[in-house]
Design a protein around this nucleic acid. Structure first.
Lengths: 196, 196
DNA sequence: ATATTATGTAAGTAATCGCTTACAAAAGTA
DNA sequence: TACTTTTGTAAGCGATTACTTACATAATAT
């Protein structure tokens, strides 16, 4: 195999990890299978990452940068709260449906007993989504657009359940998803909760 | 170890499985650890269950009998749709918070590539919850209590997200949960969606 | 040009895993 | 009472796992 710089290989490895998680599930991810998928020797993997766990951690940090970073921009934009909430939800749905390996990884790992660093990073991803949704709801209330008696904590929790439920549906449906209406349909429900 | 009948041992084994899943996570469940937890030899486990997977499958079938069975009774009772929906939700929340091992098992396995039988049984549990919730919403609409333009499919999906989101919160919060208000607070949101 | 670093590899290591085997003896049946 | 079935066990099996080791050589630095 031709030599490549470590950053190239790391991307390759991470990409193959997500591919395997998607096709075979996290529990069937082994360094042997990973090496075969890429077409490299097993030892090479450990040239570029110290441990298997480090690969997973690296992916999760990518998610924080890419996904959460994008959500943060949306939540902090100057659009109306309704628009922001819809764009937040749609960005979430889009990201998770287009990155099925990541979705599977996040939700698989969320219910495992992991080491502290991994757990904290995972928690960060979930908590950030929740607090960005809360912020938007609070903004809408502060602007007098939404009902000030709204239970923001529960709305945020209900919001958090959407991608998770969607993921489970996708798993059982074998990845079939018609998303063209999903966001707007769900937003109708959320707005009904929020309206004065 | 004193001899016991196979049904006694099976209960013991299943109970210990759930305990380990709760304390250590599904991925750290081994027959060795299981045997130690109970205080029996590893071989004994295979006197009572053919494979490790069979233990998990047996637990999942128990969930269908106990949990889904109970939910079905609630959904089919003669109470008002509102009351039924609240009792359905509360029974779900109660069951899942009081059976943390089962909750962890269900959501861990939901994102894995399992054999067909296990997958079908899991799917059954999730689908039954969803269709029971849908049935109640449809009843409410048919009785003219709730808005007939309600998107029942999306409401059911939103409903399905609640226990899942709750589970993730519990995992990260280390099992701390104050449930005395949870159902009623969430029902306020759901009823707001449903009202005419 | 030489020395050092980075990258790839095949083989090997120690540990763990689910499960079986051979033995033992309690419990059940006729 | 004799035979069969059920239940428990220690040791072992074959497979898999994450990772290391020793070697090789391309790429980079001086």
């Amino acid at each position: 195999m031709e030599r490549q710089k470590t950053d190239v290989r790391q991307e390759q490895i991470k990409s193959a990890v997500l591919d395997i998680i998607y096709t075979d599930g996290l529990k069937n991810l082994s360094t042997r299978k990973l090496a075969e998928r890429i077409g490299m020797s097993e030892g090479t993997i450990f040239r570029h990452f110290k441990t298997k766990q480090d690969i997973v951690l690296s992916i999760i940090k990518d998610v924080q940068t890419d996904f959460i970073g994008n959500l943060r921009k949306i939540a902090n934009s100057s659009s109306s709260p309704s628009e922001r909430l819809e764009r937040l939800l749609c960005a979430t749905v889009t990201y998770l449906t287009e990155n099925r390996g990541i979705t599977m990884l996040l939700f698989s790992e969320a219910t495992q007993k992991n080491d502290r660093e991994l757990k904290e990073n995972l928690q960060n991803i979930f908590n950030n989504q929740k607090s960005l949704a809360s912020k938007i709801v609070l903004d809408g209330i502060a602007l007098g657009i939404w009902d000030e008696s709204t239970d923001v904590e529960q709305v945020a929790m209900l919001y958090m359940g959407i991608p998770v439920a969607l993921n489970i549906e996708l798993v059982f449906a074998g990845g079939v998803f018609h998303r063209e209406n999903f966001c707007s349909r769900m937003m109708i429900l959320l707005l009904k909760i929020l309206e004065r």
